[in-house]
């Protein structure tokens, strides 16, 4: 039962990480590609870390929650690097697809 849950979490995490990188490889412009890594970190690595925490906590050597720290760190840093990358893209005026609301910022 526990093993099935762990396997499910691990596979889900790996699939989301893969889809994140797939998006990075095939999406058409920089700003749409920017969305890919935020996905890979939040859900993909999150699932893997939860699986790891559960696995090592049930080994009989007491709780092992330090994986939470990596998750927490990624949840805090991923939006910041995403924001800064987006700012850089705007600054360098990379080509972008789709409609724009305002042109006079930055």
């Amino acid at each position: 039962m526990l093993e099935a849950l762990l396997s499910l979490l691990i596979l889900a995490g790996a699939i989301f990480t893969f889809i994140g990188s797939l998006g990075l490889a095939r999406l058409p412009d920089f700003f749409t590609r920017l969305h890919a890594p935020t996905k890979a970190t939040t859900l993909g690595v999150g699932c893997l870390l939860v699986a790891s925490a559960i696995h090592f906590s049930t080994q009989g050597e007491g709780l092992s929650l330090h994986e939470v720290l990596v998750t927490l760190f990624l949840f805090i840093t991923a939006p910041v690097s995403g924001h800064l990358l987006g700012k850089t893209g705007l600054h360098l005026q990379l080509p972008r697809l789709g409609r724009q609301d305002d042109e006079d910022h930055g």
Partner: peptide, 26 residues
């Protein structure tokens, strides 16, 4: 093709490496 694209790819590569390390640990 652009420099921010490469930074983004590098950032994603870091995250993939973290995932790989966790899996290796398991």
């Amino acid at each position: 093709p652009s420099a921010p694209d490469r930074i983004l790819a590098l950032d994603t590569l870091y995250i993939n490496t973290i995932a790989l390390l966790i899996l290796l640990g398991l």
